[in-house]
Design a protein around this nucleic acid. Sequence first.
DNA 1: AGGCAGCGCAC
DNA 2: GTGCGC
DNA 3: GCCT
Length: 618
Amino acid sequence: MNPLAAQKRRVQKTQFFQDLDKLDQYMHDDSDDTVHTSEVQQPSFALHEPSRPKKRTETFNIRRPRTAYRPPSTETSANNRVNERDLVSTKGKEGGPASSGAKNIQRTYLFLHPEPEFGPLFDKDTSYIIVDDKLDLKEALKDLRTSADVSKTPMVRMRWLVDCFRDHTVHDMRSSLFRVRGMKDPFCILDNEDVQAVAPAPKDAKSAMVMCAFNRPKLERPMTQDDFAQAIDFVQKVGLLDYQQFVDGESASEEVQPGRIGKKPESAECFNSRLQDFLCKEKNDGSSTNPNLQTMYILQQLAIYYERVGDKWRNLGYRKAVTALRYQQTPVRTKQDALLIRGIGESIADKIEEISTTGHLRKLEMAKADPHEQCLIIFMGIYGAGLKQARRWLSQGHRTLEGLLYNAELTPNQKIGVEHYEHFQARIPREEVRRHAAIVGEVLSSVDPGLQVIIGGSYRRGKADCGDIDLLITKADASLDHIRKLMTQFAIPELKKRGFLKAELSVSQSHDNGSKWHGASVLPNSSAWRRLDMLYVPWDERGAAMIYFTGNDIFNRSVRLLASWRGMRLNQHGLYENVMRGRGRTKITEGKVLEGKDEKKIFELLGVPWRPPEHRNL
DNA sequence: AGGCAGCGCAC
DNA sequence: GTGCGC
DNA sequence: GCCT
């Protein structure tokens, strides 16, 4: 069998649709978008790399529409089912923040955020001024630094754009929800303490649609990265977040406060009433809005539920279903309708019907109310415990972490996981990550000045806080053996001696070809144990390892997927071509290494425009 | 019925 | 080989 | 969960 064809087929099955969409849009940005251009309601991004990538505040264009729902290269369209692409491309209503119905309308968004490194550029082509939630009008105007008349350009909160993208509709920018602090409507300019309207709202702001009745979480942190990447990041994240967390006022990846073990989330009743609120605010004027929001919402809850209980495949299935629904332009109410959509099968079709007839899903409500569920979540948060172990403990009657500690059989790692549960759950401030790395770096250079420490993970992606500390250890022209030897024989013992490394959770033995150290570290005069991962990387693989260790997850999967479209294979060791697999998926040949050293070159060979780490928060 | 990435480590 | 983490 |  032609390996390329086999690869391709595999790719089709993989179909991490939403991931692909995102990546595809990044990667094919400069491609001709006429073929798949259609009046897609989904306002898709056509995001241009800023010409000066280091600039934080940047205008960029959002034009629409351009959505190939799946990358054209994977299309065989051998099925005769109506799939989401067909539905999407049939016809569309106007929609999207840049909406005016015409194709390829260009809108320029000027983003203002709290830490502008360069003055934002306002000019006559600026269509909207998007203001970070943390800024008020005064501050925004200060940042604008222009003497031009901005009164005719609407100014709205970031949230407006986010909601528009999320809901595929043009929200009324005059809504108080989207109002910049200190403004009365998008066209108001501060006049001393007074506020006065200067211009009428433009036409495309008129389709009023106020659907968000609850508080959005704040941005996870101030916008310290390029706004362009930040906007995408945020928009996409919002699309995936659990609404419940909005309601609770928590952001998903925000710090988990210690001492909340066993505390239940808000009750289902409250959640439902909020949902009602949410839906009722929808204006019933037939204007464009996603007709399946409620269904999507509930299915999304289920996806998150399955993620929590560790059923990754069901999680995947539900996520795919939600994505598929997002592209529907009409309400999907019956099982038959639902079954026509690719990505939705028997089970989900049943649920869709139940949701649209009863308005809720019994399964979900039961799951939410189940105290076992709460325990399960806690237990699975223990390092070294997964779904199986959590269930086992549960069935043995354990209900609390203390109970586990005293009564359950724990592996050494699990014991550490329980004892340091709260610390391991806590987010680690960026600065602390740096300090951990500095200590490692100091010791390593005393062992061998050639050793290098590179901080990876979310730190390298510019996040304000991290879940753990990822360090990549390498040395110029060194082999893995050499580096491992230096580490296991000298560096690790020294770090332990200093009291920095507190525990070893998963450590490669010096004799084999292992390449990692997982454990816990603690700063001097601190009691907070942190999860520290070190990856030993031979010099020639540092590029691939950097990609792997920088992530994020979605980015990695997407890049790997792209590699397989191109008949290549990417892993932490390098980019390979001509990989052949025999029966049982055993590798016949590793394939030829195309590149491993140079991160940029790997991107290049894949035909992917280089993206700095901060732009990989998909 | 098997894939949905693939690998290294603990047990 | 299974479970887990990345 | 869904797809082949």
